[in-house]
Design a binder for these strands. Sequence first.
DNA 1: AGTGTAAACGATAATGATTTGCATAAGCAA
DNA 2: TTGCTTATGCAAATCATTATCGTTTACACT
Lengths: 139, 139
Amino acid sequence: MPRDRLNVLLRGAGLRVTPQRVAVLETLATGRHLATCQDLWRRAQRRAAGLGLVTAYRILERMRDAGLVEQIDIRGTAYFGLTDRHHDHTICQRCGTIEATDGCLLDSLAGKRLRGTGFLVQGHRLDLLGLCHACQQAV
Amino acid sequence: MPRDRLNVLLRGAGLRVTPQRVAVLETLATGRHLATCQDLWRRAQRRAAGLGLVTAYRILERMRDAGLVEQIDIRGTAYFGLTDRHHDHTICQRCGTIEATDGCLLDSLAGKRLRGTGFLVQGHRLDLLGLCHACQQAV
DNA sequence: AGTGTAAACGATAATGATTTGCATAAGCAA
DNA sequence: TTGCTTATGCAAATCATTATCGTTTACACT
């Protein structure tokens, strides 16, 4: 993703452009999967030396509130990804292993085994992400 | 839910029947929504005095591994519910408020506002819950 | 009913991710 | 460039969850 595009994204979301934010956003755009804050922080340091972990947390929080980033919590840790992507996963209820599904599959899967991984589907979780009525006012 | 049914559930899942487990399971069956471990623990104490918080965690973990219970993590904390129910939610990306959706709605919702609550849908999260290949062997 | 053993329990103390407070530095509108 | 606001970095606090360990209990087999 070109640097300009990142700046536009940030400005468009009403966020100041700082090297740290660009670094985190760029890192986010580079990776193909969801990532934890710690992970992003470690990787983003190549682009912004001295970046603090706490800052990474704040940046992700800010971008999440601005709608640029999506936060998803799995087994006690938060994962982040760009909002414009699809994030469908299989999550093993026993060992917690997370894998992305190939396409966007949906209904009547219970009891079925997914082709490829052999994951046995027992149930599903669907969360609609967005803004509640109150927060829409507060923009 | 009758006490017998609970025992059958536990036994059927290969779990020993203890007053603590019955208490937690009963509490889970009583509540209409997902609940945190702390919450379940507090409520289950009416049925099993002296129940330890750590025990509640272990019971839920055990029942989750046995497939009786579904664990869902939101904003850094785990929520639990019986597996046999549907759990579709709206989650505000700003304030974190979680609400259950009325029915089971699915596609082409992005950008729409939900009737009733006015929740603005920006994206969604779909997790398929079940067992990975390795864990299926280990049963 | 009595007994042995693996599994469950309760309390306390770690762990690890996330937040908070505060002083300093940097973005950006005028 | 100046000034005001917001962002950053660090150290310490918080909070859910996990690990440890000694004690108790469920339950299969007498």
